[in-house]
Design a protein around this nucleic acid. Structure first.
Ligand SMILES: [Zn+2]
Ligand SMILES: [Zn+2]
Ligand SMILES: [Zn+2]
Ligand SMILES: [Zn+2]
Lengths: 145, 145
DNA sequence: CGCTAAATGCAACTAAGTTGCAAAAAAATT
DNA sequence: AATTTTTTTGCAACTTAGTTGCATTTAGCG
């Protein structure tokens, strides 16, 4: 019998008209369980057995982005971080925090983020992204570089 | 007799304790004249005659960043865009807009941007970056992809 | 001028992602 | 169920942006 998650994955793929395949189900599953942005490499690592080719991972993520299931949340160290789009609204992604010292990434969901006002007339804003950097609680105390 | 700009460049380099060299003066000049974020390739193109080696450009930009003269404003198409830091405050860079259709980049200076509130206790925010994407006035009218 | 630390140039390298194409697997048809 | 069609996958080769190591040159200083 199928797990609740795998049924949800099935439905999701159906709903956007993408064929059900091993790699797609596995990658969606990883992103659901992670609940935070992951790079291709991190996704591959979490796929455990039967890792698809990295090209397949990239193409899968790209198709998810086209279908608005996934967002490229941000780039860090020249690598895209992908996450499920289910905690973003149409016009705004939730903000992300990165710790300068330990590199930990946090999704800042559920806090009020005002869309910027006063942009010159004529511009149409589709999406706003906010990135924060600083120190996470674990690193605030530590001293040194 | 020296131009006002070149005297300003001289002073800037002095003030942060960096030696005056051809590449440094030229690159600072390019960034001043541009008034918007540029990639190393764009900088090289604007340097005209006597383009320094690209490694030198990267190292120069890196030293400017360390000295807080320049910011890595954002990454686009896997390439950093560098700009003078003189229109950012300590804790916040001015937001940037990118047109999805034509790719034009605009600095949104002088508009009120509120730093995000409600981040969980313990986090220390050093810098906030806001990115907007949408359509610029010139592209709003156009139809098609 | 001559010294020394810092800056530059060059070639080789790295990391992340992309492209072209043939083989495999879904879905649609018969 | 077998066949056909369409989509997806894997592999190897490639691209792009940036980095590293090291030898050479140059700025700043006495
Ligand atoms: Zn941390
Ligand atoms: Zn997130
Ligand atoms: Zn800035
Ligand atoms: Zn700017």
């Amino acid at each position: 019998m199928k797990s609740e998650t795998s049924k949800r994955i099935e439905r999701l793929l159906r709903s956007v008209g993408l064929r059900r395949t091993g790699p797609r189900e596995a990658i969606l599953g990883v992103l659901m369980r992670a609940g935070k942005p992951l790079t291709q490499e991190e996704i591959a690592a979490k796929l455990g057995a039967a890792i698809p080719n990295k090209v397949t991972i990239y193409r899968t993520l790209e198709s998810f982005c086209k279908a608005s299931l996934v967002h490229k949340a941000f780039m860090q160290k020249r690598a895209w971080h992908f996450e499920l789009a289910d905690r973003c609204t149409e016009s705004q992604c939730h903000p992300h925090f990165t710790c300068k010292k330990c590199g930990v990434i946090s999704c800042l969901v559920g806090l009020p983020v005002s869309i910027i006002k006063g942009v010159k007339k004529g511009f149409v804003i589709h999406r706003q992204r906010v990135q924060l950097e600083g120190l996470c609680p674990r690193c605030v105390g530590k001293k040194g570089r």
